[in-house]
């Protein structure tokens, strides 16, 4: 299985996503890790080929939602916003950090990010 990841800037995200959508790719998942900043990995699939785009950001930068390109991205984006505190804006459906009913605020946010 192809494991390659292509790093892009947050400014390139919408354009790259739209290009993949027009080529017939399906959004498989958006993943986030909190080491060395926030790494957002957008995974797309076509004919079993997995394409991974990565945006490295922090919790202060605004990241545009791709939910007007892939409508169902709002579920992944709400999850990441609530658990990691990534500032994703313009989501098609914004649960205002009430997607999961958890008592902890952004539990995956690192101490470094909080400072």
């Amino acid at each position: 299985m192809d494991q390659s990841v292509r790093v892009i800037t947050s400014g390139e995200l919408l354009g790259e996503s739209l290009t993949l959508k027009n080529k017939g790719y399906r959004l498989v998942a958006i993943s986030c890790t909190n080491k060395d900043g926030m790494e957002l990995t957008y995974s797309f699939n076509k004919d079993y080929e997995l394409v991974n785009l990565r945006v490295i950001t922090d919790t202060t930068e605004e990241i545009s939602s791709i939910s007007f390109i892939y409508s169902y991205a709002f579920l992944y984006e709400n999850e990441i916003k609530e658990l990691f505190g990534v500032n994703i804006v313009n989501m098609a459906m914004d649960f205002k950090e009430k997607f999961y009913r958890i008592s902890a605020t952004t539990p995956f946010k690192t101490e470094k990010e909080e400072n």
Partner: peptide
């Protein structure tokens, strides 16, 4: 021995 991240979709 500790992973940075496990994510399941």
């Amino acid at each position: 021995k500790f992973l940075d991240r496990v994510r399941v979709r």
